[in-house]
Amino acid sequence: MTRRLPVWTVTRHAVLIAGALVILMPFIWMISTASKPQTEIFSSHLHLIPEHFALWDNLRAAFAKADLWRFLLNGLIVTVSVFTLQLLVALPAAYALAKLRFLGRDTLFALVVFCILIPPQATAIPVFLLLHKLGLLDSYAALILPFSISVFGIFLMRQFFKTVPDDLIDAARMDGISEFGIVWRVMLPTAIPAVTAFGIFSVVAHWNDYFWPLIVLNSEYLRTPPLGVANFRNNEAGTDYGPLMAAAMVVIAPLVIAFLLAQRRFIEGITMTGIK
């Protein structure tokens, strides 16, 4: 737009910075608290910069009181397995729905679109009962299998595959690549941007998910990061805020760092829920 009055520029920055401070306040407070020794935390005197820097002590305490490494590892195992399964299931289906003609294709696609409408909480009770029947509760399988299909992923990839020219697929057929091979050798490489966005969407959703792990888990060693930090808090309620804030920092760190490194891609990936 055209040049603005400096007054406006100043106002713009003033308002945005004030807002940014409010938005950042919990993060700042979290880091500040995580860096304070207990005596400073429990003082009614407000200060952000700790007088004694105790971040390392608090982190050490956090890692000693809860198996944070384990939680992070569980988060990694769950998100990676979920996304891998989702890709294995969704890509072939998306390819067939986008590019092949077969009996029932339109019905299947209509079902996919319908399933996108189902909120995850809606199917929780029956899926829980199913896992109970199968004896799979309180296991990695319980965390992973219910998310092995992402109808949204199928939808997204199908829309993307639609834009891949038919000629490319025909060329692959002429070159001797099988239909199954086309999915992995031709469609997947051309769809890398969409796969990345979908991957970010999926990983963020399942790293941060609290509802489902809360329902199906019992054992401590299976806890995902959100569940781990929530349990930490329940056990330490009101006593040990330094290590608790340090633990919270650890839990949000992987995604926040990844986000800061590749924010454009992340924003793209996350706002895809908007289409969902």
Binding site: M1, R4, W8, T9, R12, H13, L16, G19, A20, I23, L24, P26, F27, W29, M30, V204, W207, N208, Y210, P225, P226, L227, V229, A230, R233, L244, M245, A247, A248, M249, V251, I252, L255, V256, F259, L260, Q263, F266, I267, I270
Partner: peptide, 27 residues
């Protein structure tokens, strides 16, 4: 409405969306 610091602001305001809600709830 302006051109300076656009992506900075965008990143900051988007941060809560990324951060694990449970951890931030505890904060």
């Amino acid at each position: 409405s302006g051109s300076s610091l656009r992506s900075w602001y965008r990143t900051i305001y988007f941060l809560p969306v990324m951060a694990t809600l449970i951890a931030m709830a505890i904060v």
